Simulated assay, not measured.
Amino acid sequence: MTTLQIPSPERLLLALDTSTWPAWAATLWPGVVKWGLVLASVILILALSSVVKGIVLFLGHRFTKNQEDFENSSWDLAASASRFLAALIMVPLPLGLAGYDWRALIDTYGPGVFGATAVLVVAVVAANSIAKSLRKFGAKAHAHSGADDTLIAFSASLVKYIIFAVAFVFALSQLGFPAASLAAVLGAAGLAIGLALQDTLKSVAAGVMLAIFRPFRIGDYVGVAGLEGTITNITPFTTSLRQIDNKIVSITNDKVWGDPLINFTAEPQRRLDLFFDISYNDDIDHALRVVQDVANEHPLVLNRDTTWVGVHALAESSVQLRLRAWVATPDFIQVRADLNKNIKQTFDREGISIPYPHQVQIEDPRIVKLKLEQLKAEAARTADARSGN
């Protein structure tokens, strides 16, 4: 039984009749064939590795429920690593075409590359699964018993990065790096990276402090680094918050820890401080009673016995009144808007005026006299023109 022999592309190209070619072209043709095939194999490897990356990203989208979960995962990193490893696995092809013994290379490095790939793939899947499970556990604990899920969210991110670091070391050991040499190299690299990434390490240290002392929790409305928003996530490197217009802002943890931080929702109640201006001609006592009555009539104002109204300042053109009232933290913005509106409307009904700046224009008497003379002259010309007609 005969077997079908398929000639290789190199044999087919070298079998071409070059007897009619110029001597220099015939001499260069074997080298052109050899390195042309090497270049073609490199292009093929890049294309196939890109396909592998696309498959990993496709699986990542299938295993995550929404785009936000996908963006917060490590599937992009896994896709890039898979692309690199796929290209590494196919490297013997251009090496063989270049004249190297690719079979010996595969026998020597193939098992290590396969083991390193398996370790990284398992690490990515395990790290994402563990982090996702921890976040779900924290969310359920917070929903059922009000437990603080901030530390759990931080721990989930930290565990994920630790798994990646351990998997990277194991992958390098699978590629044949000696453990002692690997430890020395990683130590030196760690020192160099630590010196180069001081700000990043500061963020990690600040993230640990935030997780331990917990000046805020996920879901709190805070002001930090000149920004305000609701905390959505905290990782070893950054803290994310959602602003009222639904923008997501990521702030490095060193800025969060180092700058003054205002937690607007840490306490169940907040005190309103509102200011109202009245005219010097108005009855101050009457205005004070109006402000206090309007505040205490609002159904969301708490501890009405502690509602306080007084004269805050005697300004240049008004008497400034100050109102202090306690409200539940979630109702703060709505009650403030309601009281501003209700007190303005009540002032209008009670005849209490709210002064506002007036602009008075005073002209130079000489300019006024000149304008009057111009008007008289124009009027005289008009009268002469009428009489002439």
Results as ranks from 00 to 15, higher is better:
K376I: 06
T230A: 04
H298L: 07
I234Q: 15
A153K: 11
K247F: 03
A26G: 01
I333C: 09
L158W: 03
I262E: 10
G187A: 13
I262Y: 12
G388K: 15
L241E: 05
F216S: 03
L151Y: 08
V185K: 00
S240V: 15
P30F: 03
S41W: 01
K34Y: 04
L158C: 07
G194D: 09
R322N: 12
Y280I: 09
D331W: 12
N253R: 07
V204P: 02
V121A: 15
I6A: 01
A171L: 01
S74N: 06
A383F: 04
L48M: 06
I362D: 09
L339Y: 03
D293A: 07
K344M: 05
M1Y: 04
L201P: 11
L300Y: 06
P215K: 03
V42K: 03
E373K: 11
R242D: 10
V291Y: 11
R103D: 04
F114N: 08
L375I: 12
F84K: 04
Q374S: 13
T64P: 10
S240D: 15
P7F: 02
L28Q: 06
A141F: 00
G112S: 12
D305P: 00
I248P: 00
G54E: 01
D101Y: 07
A98L: 09
A25T: 02
Q243Y: 04
R324H: 15
R324T: 05
A179H: 10
V301N: 10
